[in-house]
Amino acid sequence: MKFTINKTELQNALSVVLKGVSTRSTLPVLSGIMLDASGDEVVLQSTDLEYSVKYILPALVDEPGKTVVPGKLFNDIVKNLADAAVCIQESDNTAHITCDTSSFSVRTLNYEDFPGFPHVETDSELEIPFIQFQDMVRRVSRVVSRDESRAILTGVLITLEEHVLRMVATDSYRLAITEIPMPDSAAEDFEAVILGNFLNEIAALPRNEGNVSIALAENQIVAKCGPVTFINRRIEGNYPNYKQLLPNTYTSRAQIDVKELAASVKRAALLSSSTAPMRFDLNIASQTTQITVSAPDVGTAQETIVCQIEGEDMQIAFNSSYVQDGLSAISGEKVYLEVQSDMKPGILRAEEPENYLYLIMPVRI
């Protein structure tokens, strides 16, 4: 095997494929990356037997062939090479890597032991413009649970109903919902719970004008974006009925400037901790929202924001980091804070046309 490839393109591909390399398997070959050179391209593959990645790159192939190189070492070498063409040649179980004045020889692994890339028969498929997909994942990914004991909450519920695409995530303390209209979608109704980390890997690809394709099999998810194909296990189980948490009304609603609120919350949070919740006082008479944090043995922080309030005077308290996460997902200028009572969830709702809702469970004052 012998081929020459652009260093930058190879490095970008390795940063994606390396995520599929196993770090804990007893099979040494799973710690490697398969290189398959033929025609005018090189296919890079990695897998940990649950998560698989394939990346196709253009290359000048002099001798077709396959080999498996140690994943992390190969990535470290390529990352530190000069910005020039990289030549990779494999012979006698050794990969020779040359670039400009640099030369490396790395022992390879037997490609015949490397698992074949899964061939998955899918039964439903959804296509989303990558830019919109990336923005939607960014809005909900922070809310995904890290608790493996409730596997269903480590995923994001993705649905397509009546030409509206929706992503929902919750960790049982907060809930994020974002949706976009998809009037031109050819897909039928679509529903799946997909691992949050898996969606983050796809969304971390360079921003592009193409589409992301997500297809479902019985127990797997197949995602494609440009030259990359990802395959991961599908999360089984029923997602919680989040709709029953969403209130139909509010007692008080404040319209607040997003940047001003985010800055005030960030400053007040300097004194906040799990034992010192952040209190919001909505005052109708003064048309202000006052943010207060009182930390025993530390001190007090207070911020006052002029805003538009309708309804009744209201007090409610939240975990400050949850508030910051919700505000960071809003790209518009205004946000609505909607409150029913101090013991019912509060809602941060983005201003139209941005369709984003963030529900937070209150902290007892």
Rank of each mutant, 00 (worst) to 15 (best):
F3T: 08
I5D: 04
T8H: 10
V16Y: 00
V17P: 02
G20A: 14
V21F: 09
T23F: 05
V29I: 15
V53G: 04
K54F: 01
K66F: 08
T67I: 13
G71H: 13
N75C: 14
N93Q: 11
F104H: 11
D113V: 08
F117S: 03
P118T: 14
E121Y: 03
E125L: 12
L126A: 10
L126I: 12
F130M: 10
I131N: 02
R138H: 11
T154I: 06
T159I: 11
L165T: 07
L175I: 14
D184S: 12
F190Q: 02
F190H: 04
V193I: 14
N197E: 10
I221H: 02
P227L: 03
I235K: 05
I235P: 03
K243W: 03
L245Q: 05
T251Y: 03
T251W: 03
A262G: 01
S264K: 09
S274Q: 13
P277Q: 10
D281T: 14
N283Q: 12
V293L: 05
S294N: 14
D297P: 03
V298K: 07
A301D: 02
Q302G: 06
V306L: 10
I309D: 03
E310Y: 00
Q315A: 13
N319C: 06
Y322R: 07
A329F: 03
I330R: 02
Y336C: 08
M343F: 11
L348N: 05
R349H: 08
E351V: 09
E354M: 11
L359K: 01
I360Y: 00
I360Q: 01
R364A: 03
